[in-house]
Design a protein around this nucleic acid. Structure first.
Lengths: 152, 152
DNA sequence: GCGAAAGTCATCCGAAAGCATGACGACAAC
DNA sequence: GTTGTCGTCATGCTTTCGGATGACTTTCGC
C-alpha cells in the first residue's frame, strides 16, 4: 500500500520537472496555458484513475466452501476471563457484568430490568466501560472486550 | 453509471470555465503557471481517483477455496461462513459485509465512508439484516450473526 | 424487452444511546 | 473521621439508530 503512493509521488515530481522544461518551450510559442492546463489535467486525471484502481483492485472475496464430512469443530474453547487485564483496566465486576449483557444484544432498558437498577445507572456503567476500553460505541466495546478476553 | 460520467464532464467544464477566469487574474500577476498547473493537477488527480473508485467499485474477484475435512489448524479456529444459512435467510453479500463491519464496532457513518456509500444506504442494509435475523439492535444482530456462523 | 433481485439514496420521525455533570449512601482502608 | 472506591440515580442535551416508505438504477435471466 505504500509503494503506489511513493510511485505516485515520484511520478508527480518527474512530471513537474518535465513540465518545468516543457513550459518554456510552449509558453514562448504562446498557445500555452490552455494546452498546458489541459495536458496537466488529462495526465493527472489518468494518474488518479490509475491510482484509484491500484488502491482498490485486489478486493477479493474469499468464499470458503466446506466439504461435507468435515465435522464442525465442537465448541471446546474453554473460556477464562483475563482477570489480569480486567484489573489492569480498572474494570469493576458490575461493569463487566453490564458489558456481558451488552454483548448479548440487550438494550440499556432491558439490562436495567434484568439487574433491577435504573436505566440511568446502566448508562453510567456503560459509559465508564466505553471509557476504559477506549470504545465509542457499545458494538465496539463488545468487540474490544472479546478481543481482550474480558467476555466470552 | 451515467450520472458519474455526466457529473464528471460537468465538473470538468466548470473547472475549465473557472480556470479561464482565474487564469487572467493570476497570469497577469505573474506567478501563474506553476500555481495554476499545480492546482489543475491536484484537482484532476483527485477527480481521477474519485472516478476510478466510482467506476470500479464493486469489481470483486471471487476466489473459491476449498478446505479439506480433517486437518484443523490448531492455532486459529477455522472459520467458514455457513453459506447454507446465509442463503436460507436470504442475506445478500452486501448485507453480510455490512454486518461484519457492524461487528467490528463501526458506526453507520464510518461504514458508509469505508465502503463509499451514503449513510442512508448503510441504514437500509442494516435494517434488512436486523429484519432477517430477527434482531432489534445492532448488538443483537452481531450476537445472532456469530451464533449462526454468518460472521467470524 | 420485461421483470425480479440487489444496491443505492432519501425523508420523516421517534427511540435509544451516549456525554457531561453532580450527587448521595455504603463500605473499606488509612 | 477522613479519604477513596463502588454502585446508584438524575437532568439536560446531542448524536446515533432504527422503522416505514418510496424511488431509481443495474444486472441478470428468461
Amino acid at each position: 500500500m505504500k509503494k503506489p503512493i511513493l510511485l505516485y509521488g515520484l511520478l508527480g515530481g518527474l512530471l513537474i520537472a518535465m513540465l518545468n522544461l516543457v513550459e518554456y518551450r510552449f509558453l514562448v510559442v504562446e498557445h500555452s496555458v490552455e494546452i498546458y492546463g489541459g495536458l496537466v489535467a488529462a495526465v493527472f486525471a489518468l494518474l488518479g484513475i490509475w491510482l484509484g484502481l491500484k488502491l482498490t483492485k485486489t478486493k477479493e472475496v474469499v468464499v470458503i466452501r466446506e466439504i461435507p464430512g468435515a465435522p464442525v469443530p465442537p465448541s471446546t474453547e474453554p473460556f477464562a476471563v483475563d482477570r489480569a487485564r480486567v484489573e489492569a483496566l480498572g474494570i469493576t465486576p458490575r461493569e463487566l457484568e453490564i458489558l456481558e449483557l451488552i454483548a448479548l444484544g440487550l438494550s440499556n432498558r432491558e439490562i436495567a430490568e434484568r439487574i433491577f437498577v435504573s436505566e440511568n445507572t446502566v448508562k453510567t456503567h456503560s459509559s465508564r466501560i466505553f471509557d476504559k476500553l477506549n470504545a465509542k460505541r457499545r458494538t465496539q466495546a463488545v468487540q474490544i472486550g472479546k478481543e481482550l478476553r474480558l467476555i466470552r
